[in-house]
Design a protein around this nucleic acid. Sequence first.
DNA 1: TCTGGGGTCCTAGGACCC
DNA 2: TCTGGGGTCCTAGGACCC
Length: 438
Amino acid sequence: MIALLDCNNFYVSCERLFSPKLKNKPVVVLSNNDGCVISRSNEAKELGITMGEPFFKIKKITKNLQIEVLSSNYSLYADISDRIMSILKKKFLEVEVYSIDEAFFYLNNKSKNEIICSEIAKKILKWVGIPVSIGIAKTKTLAKISNRVIKKKSNYKNIKFKYSNVLEIKSDEDLDYVLKNTKVADVWGVGNRLSNFLVNNNIKSALNLRDSNEDFIKKEKGILIKKTIYELRNIKCYQIEKELPVKKSICVSRSFGSKIYDYEHINRALIVYVHKAVIKLIKNNLFCRSITVFLKTSRYDEKIYSNSKTYKLLEATCDIRLIWKISKDILKFLYVKAFAYNKVGIILSNFSQRKEIQQSLIGDKLKNTTVKNEIKLMNVIEKINKKFGEGKIRLLANSDHRFFYTDEEPRVSWQMKSAFRSACYTTNWYDIPKVKVK
DNA sequence: TCTGGGGTCCTAGGACCC
DNA sequence: TCTGGGGTCCTAGGACCC
């Protein structure tokens, strides 16, 4: 059997850990740039706040209804996630960390699955303080559905729950009932496009999908949906992937705090993202051969522009000076005056490991330093930034090789909005909560 | 007038996930 | 005024091979 653990309202739950005043109150957490609602407490859900709602549309409502609003604090959430995953990995051999708040794992103990899961949920609540739900089934897709049933109990009134936060659907009648009361759009792997197609073909529930003609749907929509249909029929198509897959691309991009027309400003934003991307590259021990830069306006604007370009190197690199030089050139190519830009970003891809780097026969003119030095250089910069603060030292935007150190906190137009950010309670020495003892 | 059959590899774009 | 960020996989079609 496969279990899926999912943290309840994860980001909100993390915020509540260090801010007890948020308990039992309606709370929402916003996406980067304070753009959309991406996590809601049960109280906020009851007040009708929907997932993905743009914040500016509900700003007034949150004030009137006294909903607590927070910017997202990813270093906090990542750290809390690590704690939960390590508890799971200690108890179970094969754990797949599927996302920041979800994990799949195998269960072997036929009769005791629910008890075992209930105990681990209790332990996580006690040790970390985060409430979780665990759905159990034969396939990943059904474990996902099982988990969903726990969170939407009122939609599944016929199901009798032994535990409040753990569920294994055991009988065929119960499974049919659950699938019948689950919309096809709520099945894992069925997105917007697919659900429109299915509903138009009179496949409205998960039960309809399970009992549909899989060959017809495969012909129209590809192999993935056929696997989903099999999984609904209790046939495993996806195993638990214990090993972390090797990265195939690294992307860093942000929406600007406000729109930018000016090339120079975009350039200064891009170098910060390039720096972050190269740090990621080195942390993963990778070298890239493709560098893509993209530039866009908001898709909600009247005058829309979106373009990208990829440069391919002859030899893989992790040298920020080379990567920046290329990125800068691409940006120059992409930039057109007269648009109100909203976002710029860099994607590194076409990776190789150090030992597999293919040396170019004719040599890369742009390259002028050895691999060893490239890594040494970036590690020193990373160390300095860790010690003195992020972004203190980085490559000069208008130079190919000079670095600079800055002591000022720049507040410029491209910086993200993050007006309601909580402290990094567990990842920054200065933010550790102080406790008063009477 | 009339021009084969069987492959591989790469890429861009679409669709999906959290 | 204001609508996230970071990924993966699949597919069709082009370009190429003999």
